[in-house]
Computed example of a mutant assay.
Amino acid sequence: MNQIQDIVKTYYGETLSTSNDLKTDACTTADSPPPHVSAALAAVHDEVASKYYGCGLAIPSLLEGLKVLDLGCGAGRDVFALAKLVGPDGHVTGVDMTDAQLDVAREHEAWHAEQFGYDAPNTRFVKGYLETLGELDLEPNTFDLIISNCVINLCTDKPEVFRQAHRLLKPGGELYFSDVYADRRIPADLAADPVLYGECLSGALYWGDFQSIAKAAGFTDPRTVNHRRLGIIDPALKDKLGPIRFASVTARLIKLDGLDAACEDYGQAVIYKGGIPGMEQVFVLDAEHSIEAGRVFPVCGNTLAMLMDTRFAPYFDVVGDGATHYGLFPGCAAPDVFASTDEDEAPASPGGCCG
């Protein structure tokens, strides 16, 4: 265990008792989940929920029957919520390096199984470091979904975490995670500050580096699902950080071969047939793709693959055979994750592409 890992274990195992002890809003969640997810989160034991330090909502749609891995599961809030959402035929594994957190999670496995009406727990908790996932008892190409909630920024070898996530996912599976990013590379003196690191700030990746690292790991087209600027509550920390801006971003990285390096136009569109729980009328793939049921929605080749080569395929029809390439998809632009966001912003119109 290196010094940074020791700092993180101490901060989350001893320094913080509950989420009320945090000094910033980096490790808190502002997202409003859909009703079925809210119900699953509400079913989590109070002691587990009180030790939640996530920065976003790392629970995507259409989960029943999936095999899920939670990287940096802590006391297991998201694991247990997912255990309810995947149902008795699904399974959720949580990995964490902190004994104090894992002890809480394991103490509540049987309680949650009973609450959900399951004959036995559909959860498992594994102690380990995200930087060395390859050494754990986790089979490659077996997970439908990997989530992580404000943890990868705490890792000392972030590229390896993304490489291992890609290795563990099935083709068409996804890494769906929330994390904190900076608008520049963090200076070394700040990166060594234990409080800033524990608060998910000084370990934050520069947003541009995240894009490069994700692509190098095999996730050709990272997508931003949502984002928000972070506020620094503590005046002393705010003074230390100066002009550096931070954002909490939920991203979707889908394991698909053959994606284009850019958004290319093949003259195709999709029609959402509706029916995905929590997104019956509008399916949100990412910040640039809110697809209304029954509406013809033009898409680039990568977006088409993300819909038709994944678990979402039964809910979409395709228009066009893709035989002709028309150049770059028009209007392709990623969102500025460090801009102030308007929660009432209208959904993207058809034709807006990748983020």
Rank of each mutant, 00 (worst) to 15 (best):
Q5Y: 02
V8L: 11
K9Q: 06
L22H: 02
T29G: 01
S32N: 10
S32F: 05
D46R: 11
E47M: 10
E47Y: 10
S50C: 08
K51L: 03
Y53S: 09
I59M: 10
S61M: 07
L62M: 08
E64F: 07
G65K: 14
G72I: 11
V86F: 14
D89Y: 04
T93Q: 09
A100K: 03
Q101M: 06
L102D: 01
D103S: 13
E107S: 07
H108E: 01
A110Q: 12
G117N: 10
R124H: 06
K127D: 11
L130C: 06
E135A: 14
L136P: 10
N141P: 01
D144C: 07
I146E: 11
N149I: 11
V151H: 01
R163P: 15
R167H: 13
L169K: 09
Y181C: 14
A182S: 15
D183K: 08
I186T: 08
D189S: 02
V195F: 06
Y197A: 10
Y197T: 05
E199A: 05
E199C: 06
A204T: 02
Q211G: 04
S212T: 06
P222H: 02
R228E: 01
G242P: 08
I244E: 02
R245S: 09
R245K: 05
R252D: 03
I254S: 04
K255V: 00
A262R: 12
Y272M: 01
I276T: 11
I276E: 03
H289Q: 07
E292I: 00
A305P: 08
M306V: 02
L307R: 09
D309W: 00
A313F: 07
P314R: 13
G327M: 13
T341Y: 03
A346W: 15
